[in-house]
Design a protein around this nucleic acid. Structure first.
Lengths: 202, 202
DNA sequence: GTCTATAGGCCGATAGAC
DNA sequence: GTCTATCGGCCTATAGAC
């Protein structure tokens, strides 16, 4: 139950965020959100008009959380490539440790086309023109720079995405996972730099 | 529409596989499966009793596809670590190119606890006792071998998991993605071996 | 085995009192 | 703003004819 000194609207948003993230759009019932927020179902529609509109609000928050802090780091013209890797890893492991289900939620709702929010965000331009893309191209002109982005994101985000499966098969316990992630926080930047330095024959 | 010379039961399974994978358990309506299979809704319940039971069948197929070919490669006592990496990468890129939504489907349905199938599969034992874990420990005794598995899976699976997001933001087109994946098929084994060879200071 | 028709329950949304 | 009560539609599952 959400308590504290939140307005009714904020309480509903908090609860919606929690339940949508756990169950996805189609698995969520507005009644559950209302219960979690400690208010009546009618009130949810009074504030947000419909389940869809409430979901879009939550999705917008989640996208900001997923991209808001990272894009500025990648776009910074004043830092070196190595500094960007260190900063981005640190920031992402922070965000994901606080919001472990964030990437799986966003990816899977976008895949199911439950959100049109992507059309409203200029990620493409921001990303393709970012300083880090230029720096990777300088360092490794023979490869698509997306390879290194995917390596970075795969090493950083994938453990959080795959955690439900690892847990279900008891490959790792919750406290071991925390330790595992704190090791990766230091290892991933080292590994990414290693991959960037060693020219690979195709 | 599924045609060919499939039995009714197989047609329903095929269609269920397709639609569950696209929309997840809670986003799927049994009517849509029946339509896709070109049969009546009542017939679906005649063969499979319920939506849940049909889903469990599909999930079992998907888990076999995801683990069935890979675990034997990782458990083979006669191959070297390098050979295992080459074979596993090749096999996984094949499977995932044919079934790009497979990992996202499995992960996200397990996260939503829509399936109990994990309790029926002895993945933990098979994996923890596998030859590859021993070989990684020999090569890099100072690190949790799970780090290298996660690196491998992150580099291999993550591009497929994240593709809906990349596509939504137009960071990559479908034909470019095919090319991108065929590059990674060669690059990932090289990168993984590189990470295994270079001792990392923690 | 396969169909039509419908029961029965769930869920999103709203009317209307306070 | 917040509630109770309820509508109307959708979805799974089944009864029963062929």
């Amino acid at each position: 139950m959400v308590e504290k000194e939140l307005s009714t609207e904020e309480k509903i948003l908090e609860s919606a965020s929690k339940i949508f993230t756990e169950k996805g759009f189609s698995g969520t019932r507005t009644r559950d959100i209302a219960d979690e927020a400690g208010i009546n179902l009618a009130l949810l529609n009074y504030y947000f008009r419909s389940k869809e509109k409430l979901f879009e609000q939550v999705m917008k928050m989640k996208m900001m959380l997923l991209f808001g802090k990272i894009l500025p780091i990648l776009s910074n013209e004043k830092t070196t490539l190595g500094e960007k890797i260190d900063l981005a890893a640190e920031k992402y492991f922070d965000i994901l440790s606080e919001n472990p289900n964030l990437p799986l939620f966003v990816i899977s709702e976008i895949q199911k086309k439950n959100s049109n929010i992507t059309s409203a965000m200029p990620i493409r331009k921001l990303f393709l023109n970012s300083a880090i893309i230029k720096q990777i191209k300088e360092q490794r002109p023979e490869l698509n720079p997306l390879h290194f982005l995917v390596n970075f994101l795969g090493m950083t985000i994938f453990p959080f995405v795959a955690k439900p499966v690892f847990s279900a098969f008891e490959l790792i316990k919750d406290d071991e996972f925390k330790q595992f992630i704190s090791e990766r926080r230091k290892l991933v930047p080292v590994w990414i730099k290693l991959l960037l330095e060693h020219k690979t024959e195709l």
